[in-house]
Amino acid sequence: MRDRTLKYLLVAPAVLVVFATTIWPLIESLRLSFTVGRLNKPGSLDQYIGWENYTWAFLYEPAFWNSVTVTAIYTVLTVVLTTLFALALALLLVPGGRFRSGVQTLLILPFAMSPALIGVSFRFMFNPEFGLFDALFGVMIPPLADVSWLADPVLAFAVCVMADVWGWIPFLTLVLIGGLASIPRETLEAAQVDGASGWRVFRDITLPQLAPVLAVVIILKTIFSLKTFDQIFMLTNGGPGTATQTLSHYIYFNGMKYGQIGYASSVAWLMVIPMIFLTYAYARYVFRKN
């Protein structure tokens, strides 16, 4: 067989699978978003109502705006906190040696954990009667001694953020260690010989050199934060009330619990739009490297 034909035959199955498992459902959910789309109403999946689902979300659904707000705050907090902690930990770990590389190996563990299990674990840690973190916070910050974390809207949200940050720091740290390790040693040493302080070296040399890796990390983390579902579902299930209801959870609830597939699809598509921009930004970095 000629390479000319073969090269397309080789990619065909993969293209087909990606089309069937991602492109088709994307197009289909766009179609559904313009229908009445009730699971319990036969025929309603083909009953078109124009932009009604979208206007409904924008104009008449405070719960939609609530989930947008929750997701936005959640994303900003988790991205900033995870990046800062991961950067600090990466700087601490990058010199290498047996002790530090041992810790690096352990960093894989939280990342191999199912996010659903992370949710369970944090619900455990913040249990008012026998949760370890609950007890520790009670000792360190006395006003928090007798609170029930997951019953309080603000604190429950804080626990969700903590669980997320805990789960993602290891991965971001590993990426940043890779980035830091690739900065040429001579550059750093030259600066130190010139008498630059640790902070100046970090600001003027490390940070600019690390910028592309940092950008990749921040884009990736933003995407994953926006999508968050598993651990919130196991940790608070969106509650108390709707205090921790992210967009993914809101879509799940409307689509599966209320059977409003059409409406849920429209909100889902509103969520796809920021993803397109983020993916575009991300793809630029990937192709610059390859």
């Binding site: 090269k7 991602t22 994307l26 959910s29 559904l32 699971l39 926006l226 879509i251 796809v272 993803m275």
Partner: peptide
Amino acid sequence: FKLVGETAMLVTILATQFVPAVVIVLPFFV
């Protein structure tokens, strides 16, 4: 090999990683 539309295919494949699961699961459920 160099394929026609190679970059487009690779970007699309890359992008599918970022599609929220909750978006594609609804049509699959139906």
